[in-house]
């Protein structure tokens, strides 16, 4: 993993088009601003992990078709 140290209002640029700016630091919370082309997908990782785990649970192991009548 590449590790960079940034201060408030400093940015990094990824792949020429994506700019990530540290907007605010307060305790263990950091507010990040992201400027990216609209086609770039940005997801909070914990939501993605929740969806992955829900999908694993939703995978059917048996199906009682009568349930849907």
């Amino acid at each position: 993993m590449l590790v960079l140290t940034r201060k408030k209002n400093e940015s990094i640029i990824i792949d020429e088009h994506i700019e990530i700016t540290i907007l605010e630091v307060s305790g263990d919370q950091i507010k990040i601003g992201i400027n990216a082309p609209k086609k770039v997908e940005i997801i909070r990782k914990e939501i993605l992990e929740k969806v992955e785990s829900e999908n694993q649970k939703a995978r059917t192991t048996s199906l009682n078709l009568d349930m849907f009548k």
Partner: peptide
């Protein structure tokens, strides 16, 4: 939306987040 099945539909849930 994907359904996580319980023993019956009443105990099943649906994923509206994704």
């Amino acid at each position: 939306c994907i359904v996580t099945l319980g023993d019956s539909l009443d105990t099943s849930t649906v994923n509206l987040q994704a």
